[in-house]
Write a protein that binds this DNA or RNA. Structure first.
Lengths: 160, 160
DNA sequence: CGTAAATAATTGTTGTTACATTAAATACAA
DNA sequence: TTGTATTTAATGTAACAACAATTATTTACG
């Protein structure tokens, strides 16, 4: 056993025992996720957009200059919810995206990122890369891949 | 390479490429966390409490019958925020916890879980264990420990 | 002692999310 | 074609969260 000065999850949330390795993992996962989201939010705050809005912008950039339907956005969002419509509202208000009625299906909406939206993303990219770089100092690429694969496996248990 | 029918994160969110293994990990972590929280929320819904309220109750049970201060609750919550006070309000309204003025420091509050709160947790425990059991079918204890350790390492990069 | 600083909790405000409902357009079967 | 079901997005509502400001109490210390 090596000397270990790791701040483990036990220290962080002042809990000394978990029911099982799996239970410890669950708590650790939520805690780490919150830690990551906090960092992301702080990064985005100066740019006046939220994490969710940022995710929508990145989905749109991924397809740009093609339009994306609101339903497609919902499908690709990390947390599925019925608010893609209102998120798009906010982004339209900031003129970061454009929403037009889809000509082929008038129920649907075509959403496209604007030049201004793309420009904002480019400004954020530098900060984002720097942030990722600092967070990425402890894990090797192999470890990151391995961790990601374990998460994939975890989600196998019940598809829903 | 073994045959692989894993639903990987790429399939789930319909994204085919990531900037780096680390970026893929970040997205996977958020996605997996949301997947877990969704499951937990669905489990708790029939009992009329939210995930956050449940976490508060478990913190209180952990110290029961000793009281816990609101500030201690905030400290131990997975997502730190200033709403512990209002969460306690909700739990008091449901008579799952009691709040009394701390005699040693009249600024502070002693919060204790009630019999009714403990009884509710016991009812939930069975469901919770069953839920964990189903989620825990794919990872061995070793893998869970390993995953948890990798998460600890990830958080090492910058303490904040 | 008396005043300033620090601490604990609550409250106000604003924005966000979850969930259900509604409205409009489309698909499709009889 | 017509009626019914389905799909797509928007909206109403209530609960929740983030953040700042406020109140009450305790502590520090000249």
């Amino acid at each position: 056993m090596t000397t270990n000065i790791l701040m483990s999850i036990e220290t962080d949330i002042k809990q000394t025992s978990f029911r099982s390795p799996f239970h410890r993992l669950l708590v650790n996962l939520m805690y780490t996720n919150n830690w990551l989201c906090d960092g992301q939010m702080r990064l985005l705050k100066p740019y006046g957009i939220t994490l969710q809005q940022y995710n929508v912008l990145r989905i749109l950039r991924g397809q740009s200059p093609n339009p994306v339907k609101v339903s497609d956005i919902t499908e690709r969002m990390l947390d599925k919810m019925s608010n893609a419509s209102r998120l798009v509202d906010k982004l339209v208000a900031k003129e970061l995206v454009m929403r037009t009625e889809c000509p082929r299906d008038r129920r649907a909406c075509d959403v496209v990122i604007t030049e201004s939206g793309l420009a904002l993303l480019i400004r954020i990219d530098a900060d984002q890369q720097e942030w990722e770089r600092t967070k990425n100092q402890t894990l090797t690429d192999d470890e990151a891949t391995q961790l990601s694969h374990l998460l994939d496996e975890l989600r196998q248990s019940s598809p829903e």
